[in-house]
């Protein structure tokens, strides 16, 4: 049988997907033990037990100074900012994108402005956000909002424009007003696309979150990573990075499931 016709099945799919991860872990363990054999005080590649001890310290023992389980308080703080920012961005994306794509006069005013807005590098205006909104939660949420909303607005506008002309005409021959077209024809068809758009923008949302936390914060996953960097605490940084990756994966997975669950017609 030709190579292009051979497919992994059942357990094979799992096993082959796991191989790169296992290899990476192995490579790390080997490299770590080589470095530690040369210098037992090496902090760059701590061995797994050191990392395990660090995880136990931050996640399952109360902090000596504050009494918090800092791993979990960091996670909660970061997720709150991320979810608030992305949720607001999705709402703004809908509220601007749908009329931009559907109502010519609305689009004539706001479509070029949105395009210009989306060209501003969000991190470049981070100082402005800190000046205007202070160094509290608001500035961080605003950075995520300003960073992801323009993409969502343009994406939704594009999706609305992609709807077949025939559908909009048909709805009008069924007596629909502009509002009803938006509500019953456009909005439900755009929702799963919005969720896809959110999935795509979650990557940059994490970037903005960590950037904001690194610069001005007192808790959060990004804050912790940048804090312990001063002590070269790779044993904390590595599990934090793995945890952020896992959370990002969970979000993506969850949103994909949500799409398939709620919009059975979508992608069919």
């Amino acid at each position: 049988m030709r190579l292009i016709n051979r497919r992994p099945g059942g357990f094979g799919i799992f096993a082959s997907a796991a191989v790169p991860f296992v290899l990476a872990l192995l490579l790390y363990v080997v490299a770590s033990s080589i470095r530690l054999a040369e210098n037992p005080d090496d902090k760059l590649l701590p061995n797994l037990s050191t990392i395990g001890a660090a995880i136990e310290r931050v996640a399952f023992e109360p902090d000596r100074r504050t009494g918090d389980y800092i791993f979990w308080t960091d996670t909660a703080a970061s997720l709150k900012r991320l979810v608030t920012g992305v949720f607001l961005a999705a709402m703004v994306g809908l509220a601007v994108g749908v009329p931009n794509g559907l109502v010519p006069w609305f689009g004539a005013f706001w479509s070029p402005a949105v395009r210009a807005l989306s060209m501003i590098p969000p991190l470049a205006i981070l100082p402005i956000l800190f000046i205007v909104f202070g160094v509290g939660e608001l500035a961080k949420v605003m950075l995520i909002l300003l960073g992801t909303a323009p993409f969502l607005m343009r994406d939704i506008e594009q999706r609305v424009r992609e709807l077949p002309r025939e559908q909009l005409i048909k709805a009008q021959t069924l007596d629909a007003t502009s509002w009803q077209v938006a509500l019953r024809v456009v909005l439900p068809q755009v929702m799963p696309r919005l969720i896809d758009g959110v999935r795509l923008s979650l990557g940059s949302a994490w970037l903005f979150l960590i950037a904001a936390e690194a610069i001005a914060s007192t808790d959060g996953l990004g804050y912790r990573i940048f804090l312990v960097r001063r002590y070269l605490a790779m044993d904390v940084i590595l599990p934090y990075v793995a945890w952020i990756t896992f959370l990002a994966f969970l979000f993506d997975f969850g949103l994909r499931r949500l799409n398939r669950r709620c919009f059975a017609w979508y992608g069919a």
Partner: peptide, 19 residues
């Protein structure tokens, strides 16, 4: 001068709502 309910239409495609 715009589509209305007194004139029904069926196109070759995209006439029904997929959602």
């Amino acid at each position: 001068p715009e589509p209305s309910a007194d004139r029904g239409v069926v196109f070759q495609r995209y006439s029904v709502f997929p959602h």
